[in-house]
Computed example of a mutant assay.
Amino acid sequence: MIMLFRNAFLAASKQFVEKDLEVSVAGRSFLITGANSGIGKATAMAIAKRGGTVHMVCRNKDKAEEARADIVKETGNKEVYVHILDLSETKKVWEFAEAFKRKYKALNVLINNAGSIMSQRDVNVEGLEKSFAVNVLGVYILTKSLIPLLEKSADPRVITVSSGGMLVQKLRIGNLQSDRGRYDGTMVYAQHKRQQVVMTEQLAKTHTNIHFSVMHPGWVDTPAVANAMPDFHRSMKDSLRTPEQGADTVVWLAVSEAAAKNPSGRFYQDRKMVSTHLPLAWTHSSPLEEQKLVSLRELGTSLPINTDIKTGLSISSLF
Rank of each mutant, 00 (worst) to 15 (best):
residue 58 C to I: 09
residue 59 R to H: 03
residue 59 R to D: 02
residue 62 D to Q: 11
residue 63 K to L: 13
residue 66 E to D: 12
residue 66 E to K: 13
residue 68 R to K: 15
residue 68 R to C: 06
residue 68 R to D: 01
residue 68 R to V: 02
residue 71 I to G: 10
residue 71 I to H: 07
residue 72 V to S: 07
residue 74 E to M: 11
residue 75 T to S: 15
residue 76 G to M: 05
residue 76 G to L: 05
residue 76 G to C: 06
residue 76 G to K: 08
residue 78 K to N: 14
residue 79 E to Q: 14
residue 80 V to P: 09
residue 81 Y to P: 03
residue 82 V to D: 09
residue 82 V to M: 11
residue 83 H to M: 07
residue 84 I to G: 02
residue 84 I to Q: 08
residue 86 D to V: 09
residue 86 D to Q: 09
residue 87 L to I: 07
residue 87 L to K: 07
residue 88 S to K: 08
residue 89 E to C: 11
residue 89 E to G: 03
residue 89 E to H: 07
residue 90 T to G: 11
residue 91 K to C: 07
residue 92 K to V: 09
residue 93 V to T: 11
residue 94 W to V: 11
residue 94 W to C: 10
residue 94 W to S: 12
residue 96 F to Y: 12
residue 97 A to F: 10
residue 97 A to R: 03
residue 98 E to I: 10
residue 98 E to K: 14
residue 99 A to W: 05
residue 102 R to A: 15
residue 103 K to W: 04
residue 107 L to R: 02
residue 107 L to Q: 03
residue 111 I to L: 10
residue 113 N to V: 03
residue 114 A to E: 01
residue 114 A to W: 00
residue 116 S to L: 07
residue 118 M to Y: 00
residue 118 M to L: 13
residue 119 S to H: 15
residue 120 Q to D: 01
residue 121 R to Q: 03
residue 122 D to E: 10
